Lab assay of single mutants.
Amino acid sequence: EPSQADLDALLSAVRDNRLSIEQAVTLLTPSSGGGSGGGSMDAKEILTRFKDGGLDRAAAQALLAGRTPA
């Protein structure tokens, strides 16, 4: 399960175009075949909204942490 520091680094990389959204989703869902963790939004949607400015960093982190299976 990614830590808050991992999520923060991942969000920074996506925002700075050092990591594509697809690459980030793969890192967030290493063994689930890329499927959502059952959250209301999947990781790709969360990351896309964050990059487009629709979500701030704290909200994106909380959503990603919340949808990651324990």
Results as ranks from 00 to 15, higher is better:
G33E: 09
S31D: 13
D8F: 12
G38S: 12
G39V: 10
D42M: 10
G54V: 13
L10G: 01
G37M: 13
L55I: 13
A60W: 01
D56S: 10
P30E: 10
G54S: 15
D52T: 11
L10N: 00
E1D: 12
R49C: 08
L7Y: 06
G66H: 07
A24V: 05
L63F: 04
R57Y: 15
E22N: 06
T26R: 09
E22M: 07
S12V: 07
V14M: 02
G33L: 12
L19W: 04
A43P: 09
G54Q: 15
I21A: 02
G37H: 12
A24M: 03
I21G: 01
I46G: 01
A9K: 08
A59L: 06
L47C: 01
P69A: 07
F50S: 00
D42Y: 12
L47V: 02
A58E: 12
R67I: 14
T48Y: 05
M41A: 06
D6M: 13
Q61I: 15
G66E: 06
S36G: 12
T26L: 15
M41T: 07
G38W: 08
G37W: 11
G38L: 14
A43C: 09
D16N: 07
V14E: 00
G39Q: 11
A62Q: 11
K44L: 08
G34A: 13
D16F: 06
K44F: 15
I46R: 00
L11H: 00
T48Q: 13
K44T: 09
S12Y: 04
A13N: 04
S3K: 08
G34F: 04
G53R: 04
F50K: 00
E22S: 07
S40C: 12
R57D: 04
V14F: 04
L63D: 01
A62N: 08
I46E: 00
A9V: 07
V25L: 11
G34M: 12
E22Q: 05
E1K: 10
S31W: 14
L28G: 01
G66S: 08
M41R: 05
R15D: 04
A60Q: 00
D6V: 10
D8N: 08
L28P: 01
Q61P: 00
V25T: 05
S31F: 12
A62Y: 04
R67Y: 13
D8Y: 12
T48H: 05
S31H: 11
P2K: 12
A60L: 03
K51R: 11
D52L: 13
R67M: 13
F50P: 00
A70Q: 04
K44V: 09
A65V: 08
R67T: 11
M41S: 07
F50Y: 12
R18M: 09
L47E: 00
S36W: 14
A59I: 06
Q61W: 08
G34N: 12
G34Y: 03
E45A: 10
G33D: 11
Q61G: 05
V14K: 00
A24S: 02
G53V: 01
L10D: 00
I46S: 01
G33T: 12
G39T: 10
G53N: 04
A65Q: 08
R67Q: 10
L64A: 01
K51N: 03
A65F: 09
K44M: 07
A60P: 00
T26S: 13
A43T: 12
Q23M: 09
L27R: 06
I21K: 01
G54W: 08
A24H: 01
L27D: 02
S40I: 11
E1M: 13
V14Y: 03
R67V: 11
G33Q: 15
A5W: 15
A13T: 01
L7S: 02
L64Q: 01
L28F: 06
R15V: 06
R15I: 11
R49W: 05
A5G: 09
S12M: 08
S3W: 15
Q61R: 14
G35E: 12
S36D: 07
A43N: 05
S3L: 13
P2R: 07
I21C: 02
Q4C: 15
L55F: 04
A58Y: 08
A59Y: 05
R57S: 07
P2Q: 13
M41K: 06
S40A: 12
G35R: 06
R67N: 11
R15Y: 09
G66W: 10
L7K: 02
A13M: 13
D52Q: 15
D52N: 14
D16I: 03
D52I: 08
A60C: 05
K44Q: 09
G53F: 04
V25I: 05
A43E: 05
L64E: 00
T29F: 14
D8K: 06
G39P: 11
R18L: 14
A5I: 15
I21Y: 01
A43R: 06
L11D: 00
K51A: 04
I46H: 01
D6A: 12
E22K: 05
D16C: 10
A59N: 05
P30Q: 13
T26E: 15
A43G: 04
L55D: 01
D56T: 11
A60M: 02
A65R: 14
I46M: 02
R15H: 06
S12Q: 09
